[in-house]
Design a binder for these strands. Structure first.
Lengths: 277, 277
DNA sequence: TGCTGCAATTCCGTAATGTGGAAAGAAGTT
DNA sequence: AACTTCTTTCCACATTACGGAATTGCAGCA
């Protein structure tokens, strides 16, 4: 069969041992990047370097499972809602989301700022939950599902900082390899991490977005190797140092409470299937 | 090969034309149901009716892509955070989530109640976004990713009601076939739908959870075939009829604003990649 | 310390499964 | 109406995924 790995096959690291799966994953990721409007078969096929027939078959199969939808029944494809359902369970995987949600709600309710629950996923950090405050700055910040390389971004830094030193170096190296820009700021990242390790939290004006400040605390339940953090974004000029410290204290309170809950065996989470509206 | 479809193969409707994919999907769904603690290979294999070696291969491949994680490096598997990332993009697929989030934030901020953005996915409705209010009743209600058969549940009913009559009947029939209990309440569901069609909204004390009342309005941008709804849950005794009507008015206001935005071509959404904290 | 049993891996020959080229439909465009 | 572009279906082929058997790893127990 003319199925040689084309010499310029993208990411050899994407090979997992099951071809169809690899291709499906790449297809879905591609669709994800395409975002809103959807993509047509031919573009997808081109983007993946696959024949139209193969792409078509993949799409049909994924569509069958609700992982891909057609935009108003036509020729454009986009990611399907079944993924959202699956991911909902994934996000609750550790029970963390459920556990932290009330805390997030309280924090953003009191402060009016948006709060995030962030979890590690391999070399990335993922926004697993997000609670809007009264001051909506939506368009600038990450939504649920947002990804960032570990080390970059508030919660991300707090998480990475609480890893063993060897792990940290490995992650930094890997991410520098993945992202050229990452390498250049490696030293600053390292410095930041050291700061977090010393203080137990991250407070910084140097967010990735000019004018946005950041506050974040890692969640480290004794025993568990959970790698998560709670973070907040706010317009830097809105809170002076005193206010930030007060806010920080509240966050640490909530985190401590969460850690305590997780430490109590059995109380971590409840396998109850939830009902609905 | 001894790869006959076993006579009692579960759901023949799960066949999509690509075996590996079907199996992977079933595996992921199974892991999703398992939830928190994770599942071990042997149970998974048993649950799927697959050999251990096949299951192992699937798991390894999925793990490679971050769709499955090992609980603290051990023998238990659970859904991975990469799914959350993918689903984040899926949830924004229509641009709806981003568009509605500020509205949800306002509504739950003002009322103190939790609000939901619900979208159709085939025969189901999926909770695509959720904004916590001051009154947290978390454990009872659906989280992001929560699924319910179309017709059951607040937003769900509002969405279904705004479909053409033929579609409604088809969905009801299909869901009655899927869920035995659904069939018995079909007449009540139909009645509810008619009510929604007449009023343009759903207001009911008969939520699936005793004591919880429900308010929901479908989002129907002229032209678009979008099938979504905004919904709220609240403890029935907390709001009297007057308060509910006022709340309803606010919801309809927000929905109208959203529909207006969507009608303006180009203003629907912006393909801007968002930055982060 | 050495069994014993169960679960997770790895190996490997086999054929079933997924493959892409070619050809047929659909839908716009000039 | 001829042309272009994209989607969908068909089909013979060999690559890919399959599962049984063998191996390794790990607890619990004697």
């Amino acid at each position: 069969m003319a199925n040689f790995r084309s010499p310029d096959e993208p990411q050899a690291s994407t090979e997992s041992g099951i071809q169809v799966l690899d291709r499906s994953v790449r297809l879905l990721n591609l669709l994800g990047e395409a975002g809103h409007g959807g993509m047509q078969l031919s573009r997808l096929a081109a983007g993946l370097g696959l024949s139209a027939s193969t792409t078509h078959r993949l799409l049909a199969a994924l569509e069958h499972h609700g992982w891909v939808e057609r935009v108003d029944g036509g020729k454009l494809h986009r990611l399907g809602a079944a993924l959202v359902a699956l991911a909902g369970q994934a996000a609750d995987g550790t029970g963390l989301r459920r556990l932290c949600r009330p805390a997030l709600a309280r924090l953003s309710g009191e402060s009016g700022e948006t709060t995030f629950l962030i979890v590690r996923s391999g070399l990335n950090a993922v926004v697993v939950d997000r609670q809007e405050g009264a001051y909506v700055i939506e368009s600038l910040t990450q939504g649920v599902g947002g990804l960032m390389p570990l080390g970059i971004g508030a919660g991300s830094a707090a998480i990475l900082a609480s890893q063993p030193e060897a792990e940290i170096e490995a992650v930094l190296a890997a991410n520098a390899a993945r992202y050229p820009q990452f390498g250049s700021s490696a030293e600053r990242v390292r410095q930041r991490l050291r700061q977090v390790q010393a203080q137990g939290y991250l407070m910084s004006d140097e967010s990735l977005i000019a004018g946005l400040a950041v506050l974040s605390v890692a969640i480290r339940p004794p025993g568990h190797a959970v790698t998560a953090a709670i973070a907040t974004n706010f317009i830097a000029s809105r809170l002076d140092t005193a206010a930030r410290l007060a806010f920080l204290r509240r966050i640490r309170q909530e985190v401590a409470a969460i850690e305590a809950t997780m430490a109590v065996p059995g109380a971590t989470q409840r396998p109850t299937r939830s009902g609905e509206s």
